[in-house]
Design a protein around this nucleic acid. Sequence first.
DNA 1: AATATTTCTGCAACTCAGTTGCAAAGTTTA
DNA 2: TAAACTTTGCAACTGAGTTGCAGAAATATT
Lengths: 119, 119
Amino acid sequence: MRIIVLQYLMEQIKAVSLRSTEDAMEMSDKSTIYRTLKTFEKNKLVHTIDDGTKQLKYALCLESCKCEAIDLHYHFHCSSCQSTYCLTNHNIPKIDLPKNFQMHQANMVIKGLCAECHK
Amino acid sequence: MRIIVLQYLMEQIKAVSLRSTEDAMEMSDKSTIYRTLKTFEKNKLVHTIDDGTKQLKYALCLESCKCEAIDLHYHFHCSSCQSTYCLTNHNIPKIDLPKNFQMHQANMVIKGLCAECHK
DNA sequence: AATATTTCTGCAACTCAGTTGCAAAGTTTA
DNA sequence: TAAACTTTGCAACTGAGTTGCAGAAATATT
Ligand SMILES: [Mn+2]
Ligand SMILES: [Mn+2]
Ligand SMILES: [Zn+2]
Ligand SMILES: [Zn+2]
């Protein structure tokens, strides 16, 4: 199962939801795929993106990724087609926080229209 | 009801959930408060923050806010105490997007430990 | 003031993504 | 082979959010 799900993830250019992964492999149960994705997440093969739809999205990490602050990047969610993309070109800049606040992670989602939908 | 909810919002320094608002005013029904918050959102009195907990957070907009791209700011969510703060000091920088992508909104959440929890 | 119209509220029911317990199936190890 | 461990499918559950509806309350009209 893990191999199949991993293969599916590798084929995608967009982040996927549990639901869409489930639909892509009809033979298998939701909870199995759920647990597979969670295993991937725990082992830092994928990161998750909360894009404001109620469905959490999963995307493969880059080779170099350790899922630490330094690996963080923005994401783009198209309000029209609901696609969610990793914007891995640039990492997020250093943000100055209130005194004694400490950053570990981030969920950065830009919303708007993707190239397809913006015509 | 709207006045009571608005007052509650003004007292807070953290973003609030539907749930916590509900708890703060025992006399009133969940759906009423829900609709009140949604009305505020539609009329740009509050903005919402999806901080990765399953509960959407609401926070009062600044006076000047038109809920447009220019008004966007980062948010901070403490992984320990679950508090969510608006970081209104700085607006988010211009982010360069793939060709023909257009930004309208954003949900930017930094996660880590707040001053209280970081000892 | 009395009536009609509109808005607000509380309740209950529903949706839907995510999550979990459990037992059966499959795999690895001794 | 038998024991130990891991993975899977199923069904049931959770909890935030959402909605229809009818009665209450407020506002407008006569
Ligand atoms: Mn990503
Ligand atoms: Mn804010
Ligand atoms: Zn699109
Ligand atoms: Zn904290």
